[in-house]
């Protein structure tokens, strides 16, 4: 691990070449790396070896809790705290409670999905070391970047640079922290 270095970033002009680079980097044993593209690239996640997100399970649990909470809210009000006979219907009139139960499940899961999505992505993130790389501005236009981070146990400034250059990138630059 090199001191005072965040990582090495390679620039590509084609998404297929980026996927190929990510695949080769992973084959060479690199794990701590990330790719930056102007649009979602199909197959990149698999090439990088990133785990699929767990967001869906969190949202599912949030939906269940929201639904149970929504139902309990109505049950507690209508059958426990202030029981009142409406049209001779049972106190726990479950058909009437379904719409709010559904809405609460949707509301809670939507809020949790948005908040947790930001949290898992590490957003908001006002600063990132890559911002200092001049050419990186084109990551939001027409260029595709692969950054191998210095925290990777296999990272070696010279060897990793040679490896990245073997992938025929447009450029390889050192990223300062």
């Amino acid at each position: 691990m090199a001191e005072g270095v965040y990582g090495l970033v390679a620039e590509f002009d084609d998404p297929d070449r980026l996927i190929e680079a990510a695949r080769r980097a992973r084959e060479s044993g690199y794990r701590r790396m990330d790719a930056y593209t102007p649009f979602p690239v199909h197959g990149l996640l698999e090439a990088l070896g990133k785990r699929p997100t767990r967001l869906q399970w969190i949202v599912f649990i949030a939906a269940v809790l929201g639904g149970v909470g929504g139902y309990y809210l109505q049950y507690w009000i209508a059958a426990v705290d202030y029981p009142i006979n409406v049209g001779g219907k049972p106190l726990n009139s479950w058909p009437n409670f379904i719409p709010v139960t559904f809405e609460m499940a949707v509301l809670v899961s939507a809020i949790v999905a948005a908040v947790v999505m930001f949290a898992l992505n590490g957003l908001p993130q006002p600063y990132h070391p890559l911002f200092k790389v001049e050419r990186f501005q084109r990551a939001s236009q027409d260029r595709f970047f692969l950054c191998i981070e210095a925290e990777d146990p296999r990272f070696d400034l010279e060897e990793t640079r040679r490896f990245l250059e073997s992938l025929n990138p447009l450029s390889v630059e050192v990223v300062e922290p």
Binding site: K89, P95, N96, I98
Partner: peptide, 12 residues
């Protein structure tokens, strides 16, 4: 299906 049930069940 549920909309039909809840409307008829509520009105009775």
């Amino acid at each position: 299906s549920f909309a039909q049930l809840i409307i008829i069940w509520s009105g009775n």
